[in-house]
Design a protein around this nucleic acid. Sequence first.
DNA 1: TCCACTACCACATTTGAAAAGG
DNA 2: ACCTTTTCAAATGTGGTAGTGG
Length: 567
Amino acid sequence: MLQDKGLSESEEAFRATGPVLGGEANAANAANAPEPELAAPGLSAAALGSPPGPGADVAAVAEQTIENIKVGLHEKELWKKFHEAGTEMIITKAGRRMFPSYKVKVTGMNPKTKYILLIDIVPADDHRYKFCDNKWMVAGKAEPAMPGRLYVHPDSPATGAHWMRQLVSFQKLKLTNNHLDPFGHESQSDQGLVLHAGELEHIILNSMHKYQPRLHIVKADENNAFGSKNTAFCTHVFPETSFISVTSYQNHKITQLKIENNPFAKGFRGSDDSDLRVARLQSKEYPVISKSIMRQRLVSTQLSAKPDVSPLHGAHQALQHYQYENGAHMQFAAAEPQDLPLNTFPAQRDSSLFYHCLKRRADSVRHLDLPCKRSYLEAPSAVGEDHYFRSPPPYDQQMLSPSYCNEVTPREACMYSGSGPEIAGVSGVDELPPPPLSCNMWTSVSPYTSYSVQTMETVPYQSFPTHFTATTMMPRLPTISAQSSQPPGNTHFSVYNQLSQSQVRERGPTASFSRERGLPAVCERKPPSPHLNAANEFLYSQSFSLSREASLQYHSGMGTVENWTDG
DNA sequence: TCCACTACCACATTTGAAAAGG
DNA sequence: ACCTTTTCAAATGTGGTAGTGG
């Protein structure tokens, strides 16, 4: 079992994104960041202008708790390296892990309150990409989005103390392009999506599409179970974790980074004389470049019809000069095309973290009030399950998604000690000289296009379709942004939403329940546990309300629209 | 012909049970 | 008998590559 023994790097990474929820105002940073500061985290719903629904006083307590939670992306520097080169993630029929793996350090939780941590991966835009002339380019309209799904951390639910004790790792998560993935995934039927039991680690993606992982933290202690009143959750998005899914690596720089940093790929690190020579020629203790990488580079060089630049000093030569026009296009001018910086996001957003917080009151949703009373520490076997829920679809779609729940795999320890060599290894990475990344461009598309209130307002609720249509797949993050207190380069967006009881009744839960019960179970070995069902219902209802309430909030005049670009 | 995709490969790490030692 | 450490084989995770099919 991988052990995180060194907190230093983690803490550093956390500092980089720690104040995501505010509290450390940084004027210089505010000046750098493009987003206006609209609301400091921690503001009450009333302060933000949310409709003060019934029980707002009670909600305010939960709100404080959920808004105080801070999340730091582990190995942020490594993620940045990949992001600058244009992160690619291999997807296979059998499922492939993400690398870098998604690990976070969480603080600010109530130690005694139980939380559920989960991840979903949503389309970053509605384009299909191709890798042409050493850069990513839009190749057309996106395929219909795969049904969203949540990967729930197997330790969930667990106390805040448990989550904060060590790094929270989602490295077991696998990406697949198999639409009929048998390992814990649904297959299509005329009824919709059908649950499978078993290895529930896969998230289905389309190849050559851009995606954005999101972390959700759901409050679910025993007095505040799924669907019960005062349930709250928040969403954290690290833009540097966005990626393009591929079946084989397109950008050799990404291949290089993977080989250099992924222990499982050590076998591809060159070790013979020629490779060593390449490394020595760079006169740095830089990971050795394999022959295959060199071959790739040669090909790239030939393609670009320019003199090749050593992969090890390209970064030092590159003139990292970029322009970002209205978010629609970004490109870099550099001495060598293959060494140009590439970034999916404008530089100002590179380290930004979006924070979305939503609180729900559902006093009357009795059927959702299923307790999650088993303590993780007390009954690990009972709660140590991999839980798959239908993920909230992209914001435009979230209201269309059904509830989804599935059974379990043996418990897997996915949390790492916060102190140790695993992070020390990361530190080693950090010590490396700047790699010659970023030779490509992701053109024409700006992820998280501006939030369309009109769209949100006009999308009617409907039972979920088997496939989401590409026209509704844009994942628009909440646009009420709170630029705040970020270290340089970090941006923070915060949204607080409130859902009235009537809204809750009206929206997600009912629909999701009726939907789920109508699903034929295929290959289901065990009935889903009650709290999983409840969580599923809750999450669906929350994701449903998420998009709705975001628009509501916007119309409440609580802030300005975060205009990320509209490509 | 191109290219996304798959299956298989060699190599490395991870994992967990068994053995050994204190 | 119990606990810790070591050993080792199986399982698993990698990118590379050849082949396939649209």
